[in-house]
Structure formats: C-alpha cells, structure tokens
Computed example of a mutant assay.
Amino acid sequence: MSLVISHLARRFGATQVLRGIDLTVDQGELIALLGPSGSGKTTLLRIIAGLDWPDAGGLSFDGADWLAKSAAERRIGFVFQHYALFPHMTVRDNIAFGLSVLPRSDRPAKAQIASTVDGLLSFLQIEGLADRYPAELSGGQRQRVALGRAMAINPRVLLLDEPFGALDAQVRRDLRRWLRGVHDSAGTTSIFVTHDQEEAFELADRVVVMNGGVIEQTGHPDEIYDHPATSFVARFLGLTVEVPVTMRAGRAQAAGIDLSALPRRAMADGPATLFLRPADILPVPDPQAPFRVTEIASTGALLRVVAQDDAGCRIEAEVPRREGRDLRKGQPVALRPAAGQIFPGGPQTAAVPIQTPMTLKEARP
C-alpha cells in the first residue's frame, strides 16, 4: 500500500510553490520532508492530507486516486505544530474526538471508543492525564495527546507538521526517540515536515530534501549526509567551506591542502569546487604551507581555527581542543580534509555532480 505522488504542482498567484514533485512512500516508512522555510514542505503535506489541492499532478494510495477523495475519506491522521487541541475537552475527549464525529454508519459504539482511547492512553504513556485539560499539560504532554488523537482513527497515513517545533531542545530530543518507538510499534506510514537536520536524520528511514518547490535529493540519512547530490544540499547540510580546486585525472588539487584522503572522482579535468565541513578539516603546522592561522577561538571542547592564504582563500576549521594545542596565531599550516564533496564549476556556481558508476558506488551507506 504505497502512497504515490506524481508530477505534483501548486501555484499561489505568481509563486510556484511545488514544481513537479515525484515521490513514492512505502507502507510502514517514516519519511522526513527536510528543507528551509518556503521550500514547499508544508504545502505538500497539506495536499496529501486533503487540506489543499494541486494545480497539476497525481496523488494515489494503494492504487486509489486520492485527489477524488475528501480529507475525511482519505482517513489521514494530522499532528499540527501547535497541537490544535480543544481547550474545553479533557485529554480523553480530545483523543476520542475523531472517532466520535465519524458518520453514524462508521462510528464505533461508545464502549469501543472508550476501549480504543484507553489503549492509546496506555500506549502513549499518558494514562494519568486522561481527565486533565490541555491548559494543565506541558508542551511534551500536549504533543502526545495530539498524536493520540491522530492515531485514534487508525489512519492510513500519519502526517506531522513540525511536530516538535514549539518545544525546548531537551524535550525535543526525548520525544524524537519516543516517536520513533511509537512508529515502529504501530507500523503506521508516517511523513513529517521539519527544517531541523538532526531531527530528520535521527527519526527518518528516508530523508527528502526540498528547496524552491523541488526535491533536491532523496535517500537514507547517511547517504545524504556523506554524499549530497547538489550544491544546495551540501550547503544546507553544513558543508559551508567552499574551496576552488583543479581536477586532474580524477584527483582534486589545491595549494596547501592535502586532498589525498578524498576518493578519486569520475570528473573532467578543470575547475571545480570542494565543499567541506569545518569539523572535517585538520590544520597541521607546516613552515612551507601557504596558509597562516589568523584566528583561534575556544568553545570549550573545540577550537575554531581560521586559516588564510595570500590569495585571500579563507578556511574555517573545528578541531578538538586537545588536538589543536600546538596551533598558534600567525603559524603556517597545511590543511588536511578527511572528507568532502566535489562539484564541477567555481564557487557559488557549482553544478550537480556527474553521476557515474564510480560515484554511485561510493554513495552507498
């Protein structure tokens, strides 16, 4: 029972919000839609839920055309960022709401509704909150209640829009682990929207990176982290150091930078851009190197080290403080990246990397 999205497009006035989205979500998968604000994530989620309609494209579930069905007919569970609980209802009544408003022909008996709610209260570990009102709950407790209400109708697909966005960092981390456990136990097909990379990577089976209404990359979290498919994905996932390099026989070359740890790339000779994460760069004292340390700042466990050459190439590295104890301001250093991604073209114009059997093999998690 797959959810299939094909060539989906949506426009608001002159703004093209979705530009031909193609995505298949398999039964039981937990999918993260990851991207910056305005990338089209929530619009896509709302179309799946039946709260908005596309201008073009198709949406089907288990072979049935969902664009011909109302939101109620799709049997979607939706968890909103700010919970949207009914303040005048108890926790028990909030969870029961979706069942109690079903058409009479589909509505379970009161005893069955009560049994379903009791089961969810236990499953979500909120039995003691059944008779409280939303105002008497913490943010994390409200989120559990909102999830219980969405799950009560036994949804075909569970949708979550920035489910932890209104919570503090520690509660978010705790609830992420809890939600993954709930998903695995229930076996529900789930799609959640987030702009938080850590959240997406910790929770999802697959991550869908969106930007400007298109899907930039879809894959396993480790694959996307280690092998971003476009320069946008690279920048979005923290490869913020961009170094101009020259490709020669599949190897990148740059003065003062030891690139021997990087795998050979099946790319044409010529200019390219190397994308690096600061944590993957090790500055090594070298009196012959063209780079000099211009800044050193400690964050406690890490040293932030900035090195620059005479041509103005500025590179920021993060190293464990104990490994950088020999570094000094003004010291010449060579740079040794442990990992990076290379795209054809100069900085800020780097294109999609050339896909070859060699690079695809390297991309396996």
Score class of each variant (00 low, 15 high):
residue 205 D to M: 12
residue 45 L to Q: 05
residue 152 A to V: 12
residue 340 G to C: 10
residue 174 D to M: 10
residue 283 P to Q: 06
residue 125 Q to Y: 01
residue 36 P to K: 07
residue 181 G to L: 02
residue 147 L to T: 11
residue 103 P to W: 09
residue 22 D to V: 00
residue 296 I to P: 11
residue 280 D to Y: 04
residue 86 F to Q: 02
residue 343 F to H: 12
residue 222 D to K: 15
residue 220 H to R: 15
residue 49 A to W: 00
residue 110 K to H: 11
residue 317 A to N: 10
residue 89 M to I: 00
residue 258 D to E: 14
residue 158 L to Y: 08
residue 118 D to G: 03
residue 78 F to W: 02
residue 132 R to V: 00
residue 48 I to T: 00
residue 27 Q to Y: 03
residue 149 R to H: 06
residue 46 R to I: 00
residue 239 L to Q: 13
residue 259 L to Y: 04
residue 220 H to W: 13
residue 183 H to G: 03
residue 112 Q to S: 12
residue 315 I to R: 13
residue 309 D to S: 07
residue 360 L to S: 14
residue 263 P to K: 11
residue 307 A to F: 04
residue 124 L to G: 08
residue 39 S to K: 03
residue 163 P to D: 10
residue 218 T to E: 13
residue 137 L to T: 03
residue 278 P to R: 09
residue 299 T to S: 15
residue 337 P to R: 12
residue 45 L to A: 05
residue 314 R to S: 13
residue 225 Y to M: 14
residue 196 D to Y: 08
residue 305 V to G: 11
residue 272 A to T: 06
residue 85 L to F: 02
residue 85 L to D: 03
residue 322 R to D: 14
residue 281 I to M: 07
residue 198 E to N: 09
residue 277 R to I: 04
residue 42 T to C: 03
residue 32 A to H: 04
residue 145 V to Q: 04
residue 152 A to G: 08
residue 252 A to S: 10
residue 99 L to S: 02
residue 283 P to T: 06
residue 320 P to C: 01
residue 29 E to R: 02
residue 15 T to A: 14
residue 185 S to R: 15
residue 202 E to C: 14
residue 59 L to F: 01
residue 43 T to H: 01
residue 6 S to Y: 00
residue 265 R to Y: 08
residue 85 L to G: 05
residue 124 L to D: 10
residue 60 S to R: 14
residue 113 I to H: 05
residue 245 V to N: 11
residue 36 P to Q: 12
residue 38 G to I: 05
residue 236 F to Q: 08
residue 188 T to M: 07
residue 331 Q to C: 06
residue 207 V to I: 14
residue 293 V to F: 05
residue 347 P to E: 08
residue 207 V to C: 13
residue 179 L to G: 03
residue 249 A to W: 04
residue 53 W to Y: 13
residue 116 T to D: 11
residue 184 D to G: 01
